[in-house]
Nucleic acid binder design. Structure first.
Length: 174
DNA sequence: GCCAACGTTGGC
DNA sequence: GCCAACGTTGGC
């Protein structure tokens, strides 16, 4: 697990699929490429283009339909969590890896041995205000969140149930 | 746009 | 299998 700190590794057992079988995730996106509004417009979209093995492993091995997702906008002002979505498919091979015309083409990936995976993500809600990264870093209960760790670049992150609950409070939903 | 922090690649 | 060089991410 490259790049996973000891702290995160120790806490990882608390990340996934509790008694109700549901897990929580955070997906990063650059809104000039694909925003939460874009997802709202199309309702459902394969989350393609993930080309990092740790992120891939979460998608391929752990994501399940019904899992809840925080959508995070990076490289914009304001940066932060903007709303929610839901995973609505099992993982399946990312079709863009097989297409030489695609930016995300991977010559080493073969249909009989796919390297990269997607899940379909469905729009759920947009928060009234952006939950900004700077504020999240100061929020009690989010100290160990993957997102708030220094240097954290992972674009597909697990979120603990306790962290999800804190986010719900911040979003005025609890 | 800069650049620190990450990840990956490939020579040895 | 080490690690320097390179490429990318993403906050600022």
């Amino acid at each position: 697990m490259l790049g996973f700190t000891a702290l995160q590794a120790r806490a990882a057992t608390h990340f996934h699929h509790g008694e109700d079988g549901m897990a929580y995730w955070l997906l990063k996106t650059e809104p000039n490429v694909f925003s939460l509004d874009d997802l709202k417009a199309v309702e459902k979209e394969p989350w393609d283009g993930v080309r990092n093995y740790q992120a891939r492993n979460f998608m391929r091995d752990e994501m399940k339909p019904g899992d809840k997702v925080l959508i995070y906008h990076s490289r914009v002002q304001p940066i932060g969590i903007v709303g929610e979505a839901e995973i609505v498919s099992e993982p399946y091979p990312d079709p863009t890896q097989f297409n030489p015309e695609e930016k995300y083409y991977d010559a080493k990936a073969k249909p009989e041995n796919p390297r990269w995976f997607v899940v379909d993500v469905q729009y759920r809600r947009t928060y009234d205000q952006v939950l900004e990264l700077a504020a999240l870093k100061k929020t009690p209960g989010l100290e160990n969140m993957v997102l708030t760790q220094k240097g954290s670049r992972l674009s597909v992150q697990p979120v603990r149930a306790e962290e999800w609950a804190v986010i719900q409070q911040l979003a005025g939903l609890a």
